[in-house]
Design a protein around this nucleic acid. Structure first.
Lengths: 433, 433
DNA sequence: CTGAAAGCGCTTACAG
DNA sequence: CTGAAAGCGCTTACAG
């Protein structure tokens, strides 16, 4: 296998004419591979053919050298980066100007004569030139990239958020770099790395907690961070009013006539889980319903995960159903995905929803509609858009004051509490049909 | 508002001692803003405080100048990039070596003395140095980024795929840049842009068709592309055996005793939709069941989308149910999400599944389990992993031969055809309960 | 308005 | 083994 490797030497010798071959040499690494290295001055992408022609003419000398190495000549072969990319130098030469002028033409500088600009634009079109993003970023100290951190795709919840974020961000000319966090403990290290690597202009953090030390670091560095579905005192934060939502959810169960009300929550170290419990208890208190610790199940026993998953909801509901006395008749479940598991457990027990057990979820993921689940809707798109908007603002001015804003949830009534406005005809008691 | 702007001048004067202030000057732009520009030679991050101290000592001269501009002195204020990042120069000076040596120490070069390396490592730790990703990428011609193109998050389908891809890719030390394609026509332009910008080392394309001209361009450029859930003759492609899957799905309906079998498909310009129709028809033919064009509904009439969505499935099923004569008793639906819509239509018509209408879906998204939907499972994780693996390989050697590989689907039997092995107790005929 | 040059922060042949 | 220098492909004060 042969390789002809063209290498551009820009300033090797300012006086050398363009296209002049500076050297040819042969190296023979391990497996009989032959590398012919040709350094030429000011090679332009569009001139590669000419270069190759010259080399062909020069072939006898190459062949001689190859023979010396006891290797046959088998023709030319371009190395990996087959076609060299067009650079600003190519454009400059093609248009007969300096590279600075090309740059000004590309960046809509005012300090350029219209005719010059037009000429350069034409060259750009002809060579199909487009600036190398990295080089531009390095010179500009601006990458055009935004990092987004999120817990492993737990699925449904993030789709709507991501969609809104992606739409908004690309509208502002940015691209998104995805960092998915496998364990919550990795959030800090990941952020530190992002900060140091300086590959992005800003960071969007979804549903993750940021250690104070890291928040501090970001503030000092001036690299903007915005939280969505999360909260940090020192950073822009957009969050769902979990407490208000849980309060409403529980109040609704009470309004539907339930007096023994339980809750299935996720691990309390998760801020939403924590707030939802608080809202739940406040609702009970507001309605003078006594608090029974026995009817609160933290569904994080199943795995090392935070408990926001179907299996956890399933197990938790089974434990609730096993309660001998004072079994609740209404349950507030801290997420729809847990509720899905809970529904399964209720079905398997041969019980009916809402007759034997009423449930209210939280999130309003698409699945909730299929389940006929009454739940709290979160305004995820709105939150995502707002967060992006703020991030863009802050990239423009890192010294903006910190902004916190909550988004209220909204009760969506379906069938799982019996209070459907459309009647219970679509209830989900498949098990009893 | 004041700003003290520190600017590093590296080679301004090779003889100037470190920390020497080279100039101080004041500019007064528009709104009474004062910019004090201080260029110093070889300022190190860890020495900023010292610099500031000197400036403070020099304050009287600054104050004088400010007074000249009729502006009060209000102390120092660091400009945006508050803390300057640590560079390789800082480390080199801290360790008393050249920057080349630092680089070698960072990159595990063999050509470095262990003691030197240890000393540099220590400096790195002390200064918390980490290379600037962009600069490194520019010098190395390797960005550590992989682009992933996918149609707008239609949701469920891509979660599993993305999860597998993300896992695999980060294992190889890459990060993912997300490009979501709003209209399929944007695929080409987006790819061209990615190619030209050279921000990534490779491209993963999900479910999108690549124009021949663009494929050609990529081949010539040497930037690796791999397709997952898609196919192009000239590019590595990993795809689901849609035809085989549709064949099996239809065969299953036939085996369940149906002889009037319909299909709901998506727009046929979508390759999977097309293949699934072919597989479907082949199954009919194989079992000598006559083909009735009236019982095929292409569900793309609802919007400009491709038809792979719930609303489209809903409308399509309504049209099928409206059939006066020869109404099918079994339907193969080209995606689970359409099937979800179809289920709703069947329910609303007061019909039962599978008694009045049996359905088989395709995809096996999580929703299918809740719906009790019998469907074709796609090995998405496996396909995602394989695609990434190939991409990494190809980044290592762009001249690898083109690889194509199909992944077989698997029938998952639930309740929607009545053939459940667990009995029909969990069937979804909520409408009739 | 324009070109030449310094700089963005790294890597790596080259010459000790 | 190590330092000095050229190069990666751009932008932008600076000096005409």
């Amino acid at each position: 296998m042969k390789a002809l490797f063209l290498r551009r030497i820009q300033k090797l010798d300012p006086d050398s004419r363009p296209l002049e071959l500076m050297e040819t040499q042969i190296t023979v690494p391990g497996t009989g591979e032959v590398l012919i290295r040709v350094a030429a001055c000011g090679i332009c992408h569009t001139e590669l053919d000419e270069i190759e022609g010259r080399l062909r003419q020069n072939r006898k000398s190459l062949t001689k050298r190859l023979a010396f190495c006891k290797l046959p000549w088998k023709g030319f072969h371009w190395k990996a980066g087959h076609h060299m990319a067009v650079t600003i130098y190519d454009v400059a030469r093609h248009a007969g100007v300096g590279i600075g002028t090309v740059s000004r033409a590309m960046n809509n500088s005012t300090k350029i004569r219209p005719e010059t600009k037009a000429r350069i634009r034409k060259a750009v079109r002809e060579l199909k030139y487009r600036p190398h993003a990295l080089a531009r970023a390095l010179a500009l100290q601006k990458t055009g990239l935004i990092a987004i951190l999120l817990p492993v795709f737990t699925g449904y919840f993030y789709i709507e958020l991501l969609k809104a974020i992606q739409r908004e961000i690309s509208q502002h000319g940015y691209d998104l770099v995805l960092y998915s966090i496998l364990q919550s403990g990795r959030t800090g290290p990941c952020l530190r790395r992002i900060l140091k690597e300086r590959r992005v202009d800003g960071v969007l953090v979804l549903s993750l907690q940021i250690p104070d030390a890291v928040a501090q670091l970001f503030r000092r560095s001036g690299l903007p961070v915005v939280l969505a579905d999360g909260m940090h005192q020192k950073l822009d934060s957009f969050f769902v009013e979990n407490e208000q939502g849980a309060f409403e959810a529980a109040s609704y169960l009470i309004a539907m006539g339930h007096s023994r009300i339980g809750m299935i929550d996720a691990r309390l170290s998760s801020p939403p889980a924590h707030s939802r419990l608080i809202g739940f208890r406040k609702a009970l208190a507001a309605h003078h319903i006594p608090w029974d610790p026995g009817s609160l199940i933290i569904s994080d026993t199943v795995s090392e995960k935070d408990g926001f998953n179907r299996e956890a909801g399933y197990e938790a509901m089974k434990r609730l159903l096993a309660l001998k006395k004072n079994r609740p008749t209404g349950i507030f479940i801290s997420s729809d995905i847990q509720a899905a598991g809970a529904v399964q457990a209720i079905r398997e027990a041969g019980l009916g929803i809402p007759d034997d057990m009423a449930i209210v979820g939280f999130d309003d993921i698409e699945l909730a509609e299929y389940l006929g689940l009454t739940t709290m809707h979160q305004p995820l798109s709105e939150m995502g858009e707002t967060a992006v908007h703020r991030l863009i603002q802050r990239i423009g001015d890192p010294d903006l004051p910190v902004l916190h804003r909550g988004f209220e949830t909204r009760l969506v009534i379906r069938q799982s509490c019996g209070g459907s406005r459309q009647g219970a005809s679509q209830s989900l008691n498949g098990a009893r049909s």
